[in-house]
Structures are given as structure tokens and as C-alpha cells.
Design a protein around this nucleic acid. Structure first.
Lengths: 104, 104
DNA sequence: TGGTTGTGCAACCAACCGGTTGCACAACAT
DNA sequence: ATGTTGTGCAACCGGTTGGTTGCACAACCA
């Protein structure tokens, strides 16, 4: 799970895809491809990897497939950073403490 | 930078290496190799990638090379998560707010 | 000095990855 | 019914990656 999550985050194209979906809302692969230099199929491949990691969801609308950024999927990533990080970096320690204090 | 950082985090062996170094303190490659099933050279390769990402530092002591987890290297990773995440997940939004409030 | 132990370097391998192209098929518009 | 447009699938390609083995060399120990 963490593997796929961080794996997605490790690729700049994938980060850009996420940012786009988060800022501009759900888009289809062909729409997204217009903003990128790579082909639609390459985009689709990325989106499938991302869907596999639980970071986007594919929703069919007639002929189109609209991809939406999935919320709450970063919990594991942040979780790992905040459990391993503190012993490591005092700044993260404070951040981790802040999380515990403000969690609901 | 983010690429290499998340790239390191995406590999379970590398995460285990980090956890080991963080918890048990600096270790040499041969020492580490004893706790893993893979060869020393494989460990060294991982450590080099991690050093390249600024997550560990290699320090020579006579014949040995001791690897130490580098502090403050997660700043960029956490930074990205906390800038992109908030628009995405309300829980991260609160966390981000907490960071800004408590930063020094 | 000679043996032991740790590191460094290089070659090699199979598998994976990011990307491409080509084409079939499904759905919409006219 | 026909043309257009979006999706899905598969093959293919070069580069990277995680791992191996073998060996040379440097440093410590006796």
C-alpha cells in the first residue's frame, strides 16, 4: 500500500495529474492529455496506477470516463512520515504532536 | 528532488533501512546486511540511492563506512503533501493550518 | 609479515516502467 | 445509417532498477 502510494508520488507527471484533478475537478483522460505532452494512453496508464493506489476514482458517464481525486488517501503516507519521522527530525515531532492534539 | 525522495520511500526495503538507522543509530552496510536477506552490495546500492536523495549520510571510520539517517530531509515531502493535500482532504487542511501556526 | 575482514567496482541478468503506435469497439450526433 | 469521437487492449521498445557474483584493494590484527 505504502509502496504504491509513494510510488505514485515519486513521479512528477503523476503529481501534476493529481494537482490538476484536485484544482480543476474531475477530468477525462483525453481532456487531461490536452494539457500534457504525452499521449492519452500514457495518461490512462498513469491514472490506472493511481487508481490502483486508491488516489483517484474512475467514474463512467456514458462514453466518457471521468477521473476524480480520491480524498483521504494520503492518510497512510502522512501516517508513516509522522511515525517514523519524529525520531528523526524534531520538526516532525512537533507536527506529529500537533496532529494528535487536533485529531477528531 | 521530490522524485528521489518519494522514490526512496516507495521501496519497502528502503523504508526498513531508514527505520533501522533511525531506531538503532548509525550502522555499516555489512552490519545492516546481517538483518536482511539480500546481499551487502544490494544494501550499499540502496544506501547510495538514499544518500543521493539526502536521506542518509555516509561517514568513514577507518576501514568501515557508517551510514547515518539525515535529519530534516523529509521537509520537501511533507511540504508537498501539505500544499497539495489540503484542497483534497480536510484533515490535511487542519494539519497544514497547525503547521503554519506552530512553525519557527 | 601474513591472514582476515570490510569496502569498492564492474559485469551481468531478469523484470519493470514510462512511453509509443495501431486498431477494434462502443457511444454519441446528424 | 453513417461518420465522428472516446475508450480499451495489446504489442513493442529502450532505459532503469533491484538484485546477483566475482574480484581487487585497503585496513586492521596477530
Amino acid at each position: 500500500m505504502l509502496d504504491r502510494l509513494f510510488g505514485v508520488l515519486a513521479d512528477p507527471t503523476r503529481r501534476r495529474l493529481i494537482e490538476t484533478l484536485v484544482q480543476d475537478g474531475p477530468r477525462t483522460a483525453t481532456e487531461l492529455a490536452a494539457d500534457f505532452t504525452i499521449s492519452r494512453q500514457a495518461i490512462v496508464k498513469h491514472l490506472q496506477v493511481m487508481a490502483d493506489a486508491g488516489m483517484v476514482a474512475a467514474e463512467r458517464e456514458g462514453r466518457d470516463v471521468r477521473y476524480r481525486a480520491t480524498t483521504e488517501c494520503l492518510a497512510d503516507a502522512v501516517g508513516w512520515l509522522l511515525t517514523t519521522g519524529p525520531k528523526w527530525d524534531r520538526r516532525l515531532d512537533r507536527l506529529s504532536a500537533a496532529t494528535r492534539r487536533r485529531s477528531d
